[in-house]
Design a binder for these strands. Structure first.
Length: 275
DNA sequence: CGTTACCCCTGGAGGC
DNA sequence: TGCCTCCAGGGGTAAC
């Protein structure tokens, strides 16, 4: 479900209600999401203050450092995870796995497919955690530009689209935004990465950045609704030009959008506009 | 090393 | 109505 914009919008929405608040307790209703929940975590969390919420790729990092020693909650929403701020003691529904209880609200994690992850990292240095250490570049950082992506792909013969989705190269770009960014850049998802010019990589990076930022801005405008309502992550998503629009007319040229499968994931593109 | 296949899990959509 | 198959916004790991 969530790609980088949805995770970032969740972070921005939670921040004013959670940052600086102390965890009064926690409820774990499910022993295992992607990983076993760390034993003793409820007791470990109680009394810790959440000083900040950071994002690395699609991971949310809750900074629970304290003067007496703390750590980091590492959260990934997987395919179907969502976060919501709820009134205390709101009855849990199916697939509501975790509550973090604060004084005036609770943060509830729902994840039907349980592909999500909740981990605890004791102490500081969370960036060294095995799941985070090997992550690629942040697509909204200044270091991510056309020259960088051009250099990184010189020996990559794979199609560009699955490469964009490889979090060890660049984080945060999922199936939707890979398709939309490539459409915006006029590049075929089938094109081998090492057969794209430096100039076209500059166009692609600009398209990725614009697509992600547009989506964050669209979500940011309704952040309060997002974290407080029952709307899913898709409720604020920008309308897509090609994603999930097989056989519909390309918004640019009118040719039917083509669907195919790449590396086990569905791909949508306009064969006329994207070369 | 680069690339792909498989797996984790539940639910919704569509065919019969 | 039920049953079946396929599909879904992710990503770690194993295998080629």
């Amino acid at each position: 479900m969530p790609e980088l914009p949805e995770v970032e919008v969740s972070r921005l929405g939670l921040l004013p209600f959670i940052a600086g608040q102390t965890i009064a307790g926690a409820i774990f209703r499910t022993p295992k999401l992607r990983h076993e929940l760390p034993p003793g975590l409820v007791a470990r969390l109680s009394g810790l203050r959440v000083d900040a919420i950071l994002r690395r790729g699609k991971y949310l990092l809750f900074d629970c450092q304290s003067a007496h020693g703390g750590g980091w909650l590492i959260l990934h929403l997987g395919m179907s995870g969502s976060l919501r701020l709820i009134a205390p003691a709101t009855p849990a529904q199916k697939h509501d796995h975790v509550d973090l209880i604060f004084a005036k609200t609770s943060l509830r994690l729902r994840d039907p497919r349980r592909f999500g992850t909740l981990l605890w990292h004791e102490g500081d240095g969370v960036e060294a955690h095995p799941l985070l250490a090997s992550l690629g570049i942040e697509p909204l950082s200044d270091d991510f530009d056309g020259d960088w992506l051009f250099r990184q792909t010189r020996k990559r013969n794979a199609p560009i689209k699955p490469l964009l989705m490889d979090s060890h190269l660049v984080v945060g770009i999922g199936n939707i935004y890979a398709a939309e960014s490539l459409f915006r850049a006029g590049i075929s998802p089938l094109r081998a990465a090492n057969r794209i010019s430096r100039k076209r990589y500059q166009i692609l990076v600009a398209a990725i950045r614009a697509t992600l930022e547009d989506s964050i801005a669209a979500g940011g405008a309704s952040v309060r609704d997002y974290v407080h309502s029952d709307g899913g992550a898709g409720s604020f998503q920008l309308s897509c030009a090609v994603y999930d629009r097989a056989a519909e007319p390309c918004p640019s040229c009118g040719q039917p959008v083509r669907a195919l499968r790449q590396a086990g994931r569905s791909t949508f593109y306009c064969p006329r506009c994207q070369r």
